[in-house]
Design a protein around this nucleic acid. Structure first.
Lengths: 201, 201
DNA sequence: TGATTAATCTTGACACTGTCAACTTAACAT
DNA sequence: ATGTTAAGTTGACAGTGTCAAGATTAATCA
């Protein structure tokens, strides 16, 4: 009945998705600052203001890109933790490594996902909030597991530990992404330090 | 011979300093995004391009504001740790609290000081790098002390611990500033959690 | 089918932005 | 007094996000 995906090509095809994809690609290649509505229109072969029929403003477009980023993150890390590990602590190590890997390999997208443009200035859509909350909840669940397994200190409530550890991962990622910490070769050592520091007393 | 500070008032007085001050104030009140060269010129009572005789571009102006921010940070925290404490751990607590306090009470300035506009896009002046490095070194020294006093785990090298702990403070600050973590009332509890987590094993 | 409604895209326009070039004014040094 | 130079000016250019009004095309209903 509704063969949307195939046939609905008004003038373009599926402009909305094309915009999201192209934006994501441009952001990955040239950073989030280098992207403009007009250039994006050009790239997709459509006029400057056509975008506004699919997104109320630039912020909403960027939010949509961020959404796709959260999905990617979720998939990637869930998948990374599926395999079996020598021990529970190693699983934690891998998680930390994966976090940094994602953040640094998708730095512009990461910046967008956790940037104030979306969370403070934009009043972040329901969907986005849901997705972001899900990734954080996933993190909390992992912390709980590791606390039970004695890999992470359980002297403090899981939620607080989750907030602090997320802060650690986020902070270090940001310091690298923003060019304050430079020596990326230290990342392995930092991972070791993190895992050691959060061990139970 | 050279009574610069007093007499050299070509047309304005000390435009350079006036620009830095006004910019800092505007940034504090309306955020770093809301500041433009032209508006700044207006506010100081000078034309749009007069600024360019004192700063090569907007980035350099912002860097100058950031410099003042680092100085303020250094003063404030050094002063905050001068007093005597009941015990060494309490001193750590206060340090953490002060960090958050500074970050949240000067959020826009903090954003500037550790933002990529300055560190990655701008190629950050010597002076700025020096100042920033100094604040980090100060942090490293504190970590060393706390390790010796048995307040922070000394199983890992001080530099790495310093990088991780700074990351934690920075990350949590950013999550609050950017509007991801909301409930500021949790900050005290988070401080407790941080201090507990970094205790020696 | 044909007519109408609604979605989509376009051009024109506005108010901003950072910054360059060329010019004017004022301060200082000889 | 004169000339050099620092400081501030206006004009201009290429961008930006986004609104309003009009044109086109697809979907929907008679």
């Amino acid at each position: 009945m509704n063969a949307k995906a195939k046939t609905n090509k008004y003038h373009h095809g599926d402009l909305r998705q094309a915009l999201i994809d192209t934006a994501a690609q441009q952001i990955a290649e040239h950073g989030v600052a280098a992207i403009s509505m007009r250039k994006l229109g050009d790239l997709v072969g459509v006029s400057r203001t056509a975008l506004y029929h699919h997104f109320a403003n630039k912020g909403e477009l960027l939010s949509a890109v961020a959404e796709s980023g959260f999905k990617k993150w979720q998939n990637q890390t869930e998948q990374g933790l599926e395999q079996s590990f020598d021990n529970n602590q190693q699983r934690l190590s891998v998680y930390v490594e994966r976090y940094f890997e994602f953040a640094l390999n998708n730095s512009a997208k990461y910046e967008l996902m956790f940037g104030k443009e979306i969370w403070r200035e934009q009043q972040s859509s329901e969907v986005l909030e849901q997705l972001a909350y899900k990734t954080f909840e996933y993190h909390v669940e992992l912390i709980k597991q590791w606390q039970q397994q004695g890999v992470i200190s359980s002297a403090q409530p899981a939620l607080r530990v989750a907030q602090v550890t997320w802060g650690t991962l986020h902070g270090i990622s940001k310091l690298f992404i923003d060019g304050i910490y430079i020596e990326q070769k230290n990342l392995k050592e930092l991972t070791t330090t993190i895992v050691a520091l959060f061990q139970p007393n």
